[in-house]
Amino acid sequence: MGAPVVTQDAPALPPPRLKGRGTPLRERFFRLGLWASLAVGVVFLAGLLLYVVVEAWPRLDSRIWSNFPDIIDPTNAGAQSAIMGTLWVIAFTAVYCLPTGILAAIYLEEYADPDRWWNKVIEINIQNLAAVPSIVYGILGLGVISRGLGFGQTVLTASLTLSLLVLPIVIIASREAIRAVPQSIRQASLALGATQWQTIWRQVLPAAVPGMATGSILALSRAIGEAAPLLLLGGLTFITFNPTGIQSEFTVLPIQIFNWISQSRAEFVALASAAIVILLVILLAMNSLAIWLRNRYARRW
């Protein structure tokens, strides 16, 4: 007879104390831990930004974007070819990887039967590709794209290589965005007589655009900071002209920064910091665009 009484008593226990009679010590520690973890990230980022801006201050003027590299006179040196190279490479990376990535994500989410073994293989493959070190993509780009396809050391090769590098991230982000569209929307569309194509094109894709855009821009932000694969592809360290097409030779900001930092003269180190600031400005601009897109188009279901 005793046992049932105990189970009936259970709900009658006082509810867990969330408030009142002061905050328990344990909870205070927990909250302190949360703040400390947050502080680690914020403090380091702020420190880094501050350090770079202070180092770059003497060189943070129009010379950095209006002049070309100058190995002889650091005061005359700038990073125009690297800034333009970065913009060219990243623009074409977007052109190649966004349509491919988004279409692949649509197939995997909307058409692929997850029980088929080949779809599982594809899925595992994509997840593994996202973890491959970037230098490996550089080797692939050099061997297959630059030499195999004969594209040479050009903007085209660089953007194709970076596209491969960020493609898995674009696919994964786009899939998340498509998955976030409630099933009821699809069912409603289909119930009204729309075909699968019409459902995807008119309902799923528009609803998923903010998520896909955010994920894609963050993926491109990763590509913009890559130096290793491009160094291997033959990204140049001294180039005094801007790209004029996808067949042009190029350099990008991370390579230019890497090159300047390894120079012995202190002026070049300041110049490298200035170039880092420019790179950060481009990155922050892209990330702000991502946040703006998300806020502008996001829908709650």
Partner: peptide, 25 residues
Amino acid sequence: APLSSAAAQLFQAENSGVKVTVGTS
């Protein structure tokens, strides 16, 4: 590379139609 870059820079100052690039593989 710094040597060839310096050569390239001095050369381009006289021949602006020539594009010299230096890589560091």
